[in-house]
């Protein structure tokens, strides 16, 4: 059953990635051009109908998928790199570095992420760069929290001690000794963070502080078409369902991975 879920998730996720990569080839229309009648139903225009400006919904969703997946992956890569580096730095240095980093991470984590992001984006203004940086900083605290105890355990291990005595540099044993040991936990956490980042960016865009018009990610598409739902159109639900499909497939893969490597279930 789990294996079936896993295969289904892999297939769905691969399809989504391919759809995002080849969006310009697959999309029947340009995403920002009015090609149908406004609010055209699926039968009248395009596969999924049109929005209030007559833009093709299916094409917009394909391009929205690019933003959603692109931003989530970028954020997760940046956040894991920052969080893991800082966790190992703290485990190695101990002392003030450790205490200060710990306090900073606690402080950031003690405030709900979406609230923190709203405050920072209000101040910094919304652009792709501020958006990705803000999300990456917030997400890196979670990588830090998961990896800090793992790092401490690994640093205390005999073979690391031996490497240290042998006079190897910090970079060497990070690459050769520590990362291979921490990999399963890290990969599981990475998957969980991607699915969270997808919900996070979708939420921010839905609130209007994410990807800015005329471009739209999946959350932004829901926002744009929200009014159509009150007149009985289902079009805003398609991008929202697409978001759920991404998180479901990522969660399915992570779930299989966690069981395969019997990693603690308390991650994330």
């Amino acid at each position: 059953m789990r294996r079936f879920g896993f295969l289904l998730s892999v297939a769905a996720f691969a399809a989504l990635i391919l759809a995002a990569l080849f969006a310009p080839v697959i999309a029947p229309f340009l995403p920002n051009e009015p090609v149908h009648a406004p609010y055209a139903t699926p039968g009248e225009g395009g596969l999924l109908g049109a929005d209030s400006l007559g833009r093709d919904m299916f094409s917009r969703i394909l391009f929205g998928l690019r933003y959603t997946l692109g931003i989530s992956l970028t954020v997760s890569v940046l956040a894991s790199f920052t969080g893991v580096s800082l966790a190992f730095l703290a485990a190695f240095r101990r002392g003030w570095t450790d205490i200060l980093l710990g306090r900073l991470v606690d402080a950031i984590m003690s405030v709900p992420q979406i609230i923190f992001a709203l405050v920072v984006l209000a101040v910094a203004g919304v652009s792709l760069v501020t958006l990705i940086m803000t999300m990456a900083v917030l997400e890196s605290t979670l990588f830090y929290r998961v990896m800090r105890p793992v790092a401490a355990d690994i640093v205390a291990m005999d073979y690391v001690e031996v490497a240290r005595l042998r006079g190897e540099g910090l970079g060497w044993y990070l690459r050769r000794e520590i990362l291979p040991n921490a990999a399963p936990t890290l990969i599981a956490e990475f998957g969980i963070r991607i699915s969270y980042a997808v919900l996070f960016i979708s939420g921010l865009s839905f609130l209007g502080v994410g990807v800015q018009p005329p471009a739209a990610d999946l959350g932004g598409l829901v926002r744009e078409n929200a009014l159509a739902i009150s007149v009985g159109q289902l079009s805003p639900l398609a991008p929202a369902a697409c978001i759920a499909l991404i998180t479901l497939s990522v969660n399915g893969i992570v779930d299989w991975f966690i069981h395969k490597y019997s990693i603690r279930a308390e991650l994330g």
């Binding site: 939420g203 978001i243 759920a244 969660n251």
Partner: peptide, 10 residues
């Protein structure tokens, strides 16, 4: 858990 909150609302 996989659904965005607004999907439930809509």
């Amino acid at each position: 858990l996989a659904m965005p909150a607004f999907l439930v609302g809509y």
